[in-house]
Design a protein around this nucleic acid. Structure first.
Lengths: 210, 210, 210, 210
DNA sequence: TATGAATGAGGTTTCATTCAT
DNA sequence: GATGAATGAAACCTCATTCAT
């Protein structure tokens, strides 16, 4: 027996999807309410205004994604740098290529970054920064004796850039290849590539330093 | 003595900047005309409609950026793979961190990808694809005996991802560090890092294959 | 006690009158809303856009006119050709010279024919053609043994031409005579004239054929 | 050797056609100038404003049509009423079904009547009224001993109604039959029908009066 | 005599929000 | 707790006209 969802819930979920699809400014309140099969006034009634709904959507989306694909998902005991790299990267590829609700967060993020609203500052502080610390701390620990500060920062950039590029170039990819759904094996393969490639990059830098 | 620019030029340049700043949908014709000190009807008079102006802006922006920072700018004779990597990457970092008009193209691109209009297809075909071929051909040539097709594709992804991440994360960076202007030396340094890091990544893959 | 009409109704009726007065293109949404004492956005809210309102106006106007003055209004039992002629013609003169809402349909029709929009095709199929069949079938039945096909068609033309001329030359008439309101007797008299004149015309043709 | 027409002439002729096609309000100055291959300012320069151009168009169109198809074109010596009827009707059918410039006048007339501008008053006085006098006087002369004033007026109505109906229902006809071009024989045939039909109608009325 | 750039008034439509119920 | 009618601000676009050359 499926209990019917409350109006508030239906609006929130509809908003989540449409915001992820079209961004804040291109989404109309009417779009959302129609998809939610709710009244046009529902957004203002339940959330105050469009912007507050947008905030609620962020919370909702992040909750789901970080529960479904935690950044420290499969670290073994006494994890190596490679383990950290893989765990981080693997979480991101899974999030980015997820077709369910857990996949909406990266899409929202992409749109928000390209067209920041006031929400971005909060998101950076609450979500993006803590997340990057997970990997950042380990990288720093392992490399601080071999690379200088600036080099370490650049390595972080290289690693993260490879990951999020899957998110940022999605519209291009889908225009060329169509909307291709990846299976579990393929997602892991992508993560493994980035981890390996990055380990190679790091080694090269260490070598050069000698 | 500065000759006064024509209305058409003023509108085009104003549009270029505002579109780069706010994207197509968030930019109003009124914004543009005000900045250009032109009448509200100037856009329609000179360009037909907002969308055609947007097209013209793309042409303008790409022209400038690709003339100022050509992708094959400083290849030596008999260039190695590393030379190609550096040339490509160096052009991109210079484009992305350029504070003048030549820097508007990457910004436009970022917004367009996050919120595609009809212009994106054309841009992909005419600009992005040809550009990625420059590096792609050389990479393929050099690596086809050591890596399989899929690995080569992933390498390209890793290289380009590192470059364009500077473009995509700009709003984040500027929120953390403020709007920091890089000098020539710093741009080259970034390019050199990516080239080196990527060479390391490639070597690692080749090694693993043995 | 007059119950206040709904905004939708007020807009529809205002539109009906103004469209009849000035035609589709010369009528502004603002005109309509002002007359209806409604907000400028009321048209779009209730009807989607100006064109859909125009469609609704047609439905409304035709409904009223064909209920008030049905084309087969006063046929006796076993009607003769003259009865048909009179019934048809009498309905048209009453519609054309009606000063109330039922008189708006012919005015709309005149403007639409002079300046067709997409609505005309639909109106022809749904309204004009069925209506002309009412008389057409009887004429054909009665005359097919005395006149050839082409002659019958021309007779129909002559009959209808006389009727609708009252509609088409209204602006001229009103400029010469002022806006003269016909009483019941006068309308019937016009109808009777056309019926008689037309019977004479038909007889003449039959005579000539012998 | 065809001398190139002056800008003024080209604008006038283009305006004539477009006004006839779309009516005053739906025609833009830009449309006209484009068709005339003239500058956008040409209308205002040569004619002052759009309305004055419209006036000039009327003069032009009427000049051509009344020279090409004079209303008293083929009256024999000592013409009978039927001769007058035929001459008048024949001129009108030729004007209405003319595909050249001489055919533009009826089209302008139709649009003007449906959507009168200030020009209509002048046209009535200078064109329509004199024209209807040609037939009117003869009809009155011949029938004044057999029909009363009102009957005579109604007869005029019936005759003219049949003629101009070809003009007024053109958009309907063309939607049903496509744009069919009539040859000389067919135009005369239509005129002959109306003349005959009308003579029959008149006789019937006279008969009834006895 | 003629042009083409430029303008401002006014048109339709969209949309987040409000308000009475 | 929820609705749907209604609103006003603002967007894009059209077009007759003007003006400097």
């Amino acid at each position: 027996m499926t209990k019917k969802k409350s109006t508030r819930e239906r609006v929130l979920e509809a908003a989540c999807q449409i915001f992820a699809d079209k961004g804040f400014h291109n989404t109309t309140v009417a779009d959302i309410c129609e998809k939610a099969e709710a009244n046009i006034a529902a957004v203002n009634y339940h959330f105050g205004d469009k912007e507050s709904l947008y905030d609620a959507v962020w919370h909702h989306a992040f909750e789901i994604t970080s529960n479904t694909y935690p950044i420290d998902g499969d670290l073994p005991e006494n994890p190596t740098l490679l383990d950290y790299l893989f765990s981080h990267t693997n979480a991101l590829t899974h999030r980015i290529f997820c077709e369910e609700e857990a996949g909406l967060f990266p899409k929202l993020l992409h749109r928000e970054i390209a067209n920041p609203t006031l929400a971005l500052d909060r998101i950076m502080k609450e979500v993006l920064f803590p997340q990057s610390m997970f990997l950042g701390k380990k990288v720093h620990e392992e490399l601080k004796n071999h690379l200088d500060e600036k080099q370490i920062r650049l390595c972080m950039h290289s690693i993260i850039g490879q990951c999020v590029f899957f998110n940022f170039n999605r519209p291009l990819r889908e225009r060329v290849l169509g909307k291709k759904i990846l299976n579990e094996e393929e997602k892991v393969e992508l993560a493994r590539h980035i981890a390996t490639f990055s380990m190679g990059g790091i080694k090269e830098l260490i070598n050069k330093n000698k």
